[in-house]
Design a protein around this nucleic acid. Structure first.
Lengths: 199, 199
DNA sequence: CGGCGTTTTGAGAGAGCTCAACATCGGTGG
DNA sequence: CCACCGATGTTGAGCTCTCTCAAAACGCCG
C-alpha cells in the first residue's frame, strides 16, 4: 500500500527531506533508529556487510517505496542504507509516527499490512537465494518482475547492481544473460529484458 | 513477544488445536488462509519447493513460536507448513483475530512488533544465505544461536534438518562440522555444539 | 535382533568465483 | 568538437568448493 494512503497527517507534518549523493549512506547497522523513510527519487539499497567485506543486498527501495519499517520497533538499525543513485528521501520521525499510529488504529493496521507483505517478499528473496544455478536464479527473478505485459522486465540501475541484488558476481550474470539470449530465452534492449516464453 | 502477552481473549477463545504427525502438512502454498498458528509442542517448518523439487526452508517454529503471521493480510498462504516432528498447534482463526485486533490497538501494535522482528530475522537469514563458504555459514549460524552462556548451541532436531535450514547438503554439513571439530573451533556432544572461541 | 533413518566418509564432476584483459559507454573539461 | 577518464559491460582461463552419487557405520525403536 502506498505510504500516502495510510500515513497519518501528524506524522506527515513532522517529516523532513534529505538528499543523498550516490554511494552516500543514510544510516549504518547499529546506529540509533530515527524513523521510517520514504524514497522520493532515486534508489536506496539496504545491505549487510559480512566480515569478508561482501555486501548482501537485503532490499532495494525505489520511488514511492518505504524502508526501515522495522526501525519503529527496534532501537538500532539492523542493516546499512546506501544510495544506489543520487536520491532524495523523506524521514517520518519515529516518535511522532508511533504516537500517530497509536491514535489511529486504521493506520496501524495498514502499517501491519505493509510489514506482512514485506515478510512475504523477503521469503521470496530467500527462495531466490536457495536456487544454486545462476540460470535458474536469473529466470526466477525475471518471471517475478515482469511488467504489466507479462513478459518485459524493466531494469532499475545497472546490471552490476542487479548482480549484487541476485547474489551473483557480475561476470556470472553477464555470462548467464548472454547464454539466455543465445538460447533464445530472452531478448535484451538497453535496460529491458523480454522473456520469449512467459510463464 | 510471547503470544500470551498480546493475544486478545476473544481470539484465544475462538482458537482450536490440532495434532500433526511428522511429515504431515498443515497448509500448502496457495491454499486459502484460515489464520495464525502457534506451536504448542514439536517443530513446524515453513518451506517453498522450487520446480527442481528442492525445499527452501524459510522458517522453523518451535514451542511458543507463532507462524503464518502474514496470513492475516493475505488471501493465500505463500509457503508450505510441514511438521518436522510430531507436533501440536493452535489455530487462531483469521476472522476473529482480525476483529479482535481492530478493537484492541495495543494488541495490534504488539502484532506489528512481532512482524517487525520477523522482518529482521528474515534479513539475517538472507545474510546467512549470502555466505558461500559452508564453514563461514555454519559459524555464522552458531554465533547467532548460542545460548545464555555465549558459547553453546542447542540443536533442535537432527543435523540433517539443520543442513536444510542452512541451505547446505547434509554431507557438506557433516564434513564441515568434522573439520571445525578437528581444527578445534568447536566441540560436539549429542545435540550440543560448543564454540571454543566465542565472539 | 532386525529395520530404518541418521551420520560419516570417499571420489568425481560441475558450476560459480577469482583474476585478468579488453571493449564500451557516458560524462567532463580543454 | 574531441580527448580523456572512470565505471560499466564482456569474455577468457583456471581453481576451488559444493553438490551428487555411492557405500558403509552407527543409533534408535519396535
Amino acid at each position: 500500500m502506498p505510504v500516502k494512503d495510510w500515513m497519518p497527517a501528524v506524522a506527515r507534518a513532522a517529516a523532513s527531506e534529505r538528499k543523498l549523493k550516490i554511494g552516500e549512506s543514510l544510516f549504518r547497522q547499529g546506529s540509533k533508529t530515527v524513523g521510517l523513510y520514504e524514497v522520493l527519487s532515486g534508489c536506496v539499497r539496504l545491505v549487510r556487510v559480512d566480515r569478508a567485506g561482501h555486501e548482501a543486498v537485503l532490499h532495494v527501495a525505489g520511488p514511492g517505496d518505504t524502508f526501515a519499517e522495522a526501525s519503529l520497533f527496534s532501537a538500532q538499525y539492523h542493516c546499512d542504507a546506501i544510495a544506489s543513485t543520487n536520491a532524495s528521501v523523506r524521514l517520518y520521525p519515529k516518535r511522532e509516527l508511533l504516537a500517530a499510529l497509536d491514535k489511529n488504529p486504521k493506520a496501524m493496521k495498514a502499517f501491519s499490512s505493509t510489514l506482512a507483505h514485506l515478510v512475504i517478499s523477503l521469503r521470496t528473496r530467500i527462495e531466490q537465494r536457495n536456487i544454486r544455478s545462476a540460470r535458474d536464479r536469473v529466470r526466477h527473478f525475471l518471471v517475478l518482475n515482469v511488467g504489466s505485459d507479462g513478459r518485459t522486465v524493466e531494469l532499475r540501475g545497472a546490471l552490476k547492481d542487479l548482480a549484487a541484488e541476485l547474489g551473483l558476481t557480475h561476470e556470472s550474470l553477464y555470462r548467464t544473460l548472454a547464454e539466455l539470449e543465445r538460447s533464445g530465452d530472452i531478448r535484451r534492449k538497453r535496460g529491458k529484458i523480454t522473456l520469449s516464453n512467459p510463464v
